[in-house]
Each structure stands twice: as structure tokens, then as C-alpha cells.
Amino acid sequence: MTAFRVQDYPLKNYQPRGGGPTKAQSGGLRALLSRSPWTYRLIVLAIIGGIWQAYATAAQLLLVPKFTDTMIGVVTLAINPDTWVAFMISNQALVVGFGISVVFGVLLGLGAARFRSIEGFVDPYLSILMVTPMAALIPILMMALGLDLSSRVVLVIVFAIPVIIVNSRTGVRQVDPNLIEMATSFGATEREIWVKILLPGALPAIMTGIRLGLGRGVTGMVIIELLMVAVGIGNLILRYQGNFSADLLYAVVILVIFEALILVSILRFIERKVAPWASQTVLRD
């Protein structure tokens, strides 16, 4: 029997690379692309718009508007006060529901991290909320709370709060235990450890939870209006759908996306303001 040799089993994907100094990157397209992420973003948008336009023109379907018509629809809606009223109505539920979600979600998350009793109380319901298809709750909410603002608010909360609770709790749990020990060694009380170590340490995770919760809250806000309470944005969508005004229907959806993007950008901005240490470069000595 011959001896086993590692060399008899070459790497399948190994290609020797050329040595020597690295070549300077050529200009042109590469330089253009490396300038800003917006270059890529606009290129992607142009490609999607182009395919959309080509498909809509070729297919001539009643409910697929052309890209250009949709953009005109966006402008039409944006200058129409009725649109703004519809967005205001819908956003009432978001403002109230999301506000409640942030306050109680963060408190419950922090409480769950600190007290076993709160965790034991929150945990099973949280698990249920995380796996339940929320839309299935809508008929139940309707029957319990009726057609007014309160059922929309509750739905926004049900959508938004789980991720805020979970992120707040995880945020506290993942604070470096060395910091807690350090603070204890310098004589910190439990309250000081919370204020000076755990809360600042959990802040980035809490902010991420709030941002994710906002996205879910917007989803909840639109879904209940589409499925049950036809007011605000949901009402607009259903109306344009009924009228076969495909361009306006698409335009509403795009406006909703705009709103969500703007809100999330604001939260990202706040996140960077309050937790700037999350992204850092290291200095060598």
C-alpha cells in the first residue's frame, strides 16, 4: 500500500494569481461607478423603469400602467389635497400606534431584560405575536373594537411592538459584561449601572428595533385599511382599483413607499446622532 500524500488531492478551485505590483485601476466607467452609491441606485432605477415601460407598452394590459404614466400619476396625486387628507387620516393610526409601541415596547423589553417575572409574562405572548400572521387578527379586532380609529391603532401596535420589545431586550442582554463588572468595581449602584452602562449600551439595538418597528407599523396601517376599514390610503387604493385607474393606483403605492423611506431615513439619522460609536475606524499607534 502506498503512503497517503496530501499532494495527490489538489484543490479544485485553485488558480495561481499573477504576482507583481497591483495595476492602477483604469478610469472611465469604473471611476464613475466608484464615486457614489447613488450612481448605482439611479442606474438600477433606470433599468427597472425601462423594463417596466417596455413591458407595459408591449402588453397593453388595463391594470399595468406605463412607467411614465405612473410617474405623472405620482405628481398628480402629490398636488391633490385629497391625497394629503387621505395620508393624514391613515397616519393618525400610525402616529398613535407607533408612539405607544415605542414607549411600551422599549419599557417591556428593558423590563424583560431586568426582571425574570416580566420576561416570563412577556415571552409566550411575544412568541405568539412573532409567528402569527397578523392579517389573521384583523377580523377579530374589527369585531372587538369596531370600525373606528382604535382598531387601526391596535393593529399598528400589534405589528410594530414585538420587534421593538425583542430588540430592546436583546440590546440590554448583549451589553459587554466586562463593563458591568468595571462599573461595579468603581462602586456603581444598580441604578447607576442602568443609567450609565446598560441603557447607553443597548441604545443602538433599541434604535434598530424602533426602525424595524416603524416599517412593520406602516404595513399594518395599510393592510387594515385595505382589508377592513376603507379609509385614508387604503380607501384611495380601493377606489382607484375599482375605477381601473391603474396609473393612480400604482402612484399611491409609490407614495406610501416614499413616506416609509422618508420616515426610516429620519430614524437612521437619529440613530447616527444618538449612537455614533456604532461605526468607527481604528487608529494604529
Binding site: N178, M182, F186, I197, P200
Partner: peptide
Amino acid sequence: GPDRAMVFQAFALMPW
């Protein structure tokens, strides 16, 4: 206690 202070292997600095 205030008579003792510790230096940690993992530095234990508050990143914020």
C-alpha cells in the same frame, strides 16, 4: 471600595 481600583484585561471602556 475606594481604596482599590482595577485594570481589566479586556480594557472595559465604554464605547460611547
